[in-house]
Computed example of a mutant assay.
Amino acid sequence: MSLSSHVQELKKKHQTLSAHVEALQRSPGVDDLELAQLKKKKLQIKEEISRLATH
């Protein structure tokens, strides 16, 4: 997999997680632990995208 396609896949995962987080935040009775884990994963992906983009 090329670097460009890897970054694109990461961006898709980030967007999917973002949409999932937004949906959970609008839901009543949201599991705070699950939400925190998803946000952490989303941040990790964003950091990896940034790291790869600078290389």
Rank of each mutant, 00 (worst) to 15 (best):
K11A: 09
S2N: 15
S27L: 10
Q37L: 13
T54V: 06
A23G: 06
A19E: 12
M1C: 13
R51L: 13
I45Q: 01
V21W: 01
K13C: 00
H6F: 12
A53M: 08
T16E: 09
K42P: 00
K41G: 00
L17S: 00
V7N: 04
L52M: 15
V21I: 15
K42E: 11
Q15P: 00
Q25E: 09
E9K: 12
V30F: 02
K12S: 08
S50E: 15
G29I: 04
L43T: 09
H55V: 15
L17N: 09
Q44S: 06
K13A: 01
L38Y: 03
E47Y: 07
R26H: 13
L33Q: 11
I49W: 07
P28E: 09
L17Q: 06
L35V: 01
H14S: 03
K42L: 10
E48K: 14
R51T: 09
K46V: 03
R26L: 10
K46E: 14
L33G: 08
K11R: 13
K39M: 14
L33P: 05
K41T: 03
K11Q: 15
K41V: 02
L38Q: 00
H55Q: 15
S2W: 03
K40W: 00
E48C: 08
S50A: 14
L33W: 05
K13H: 07
P28F: 06
S18K: 04
D32V: 11
A23H: 07
Q37F: 00
K42N: 13
L17I: 05
S50W: 11
L3W: 08
H14L: 12
A53E: 15
K12H: 10
M1L: 13
H55G: 07
L24I: 05
Q25R: 06
H55T: 14
H14I: 01
H6E: 15
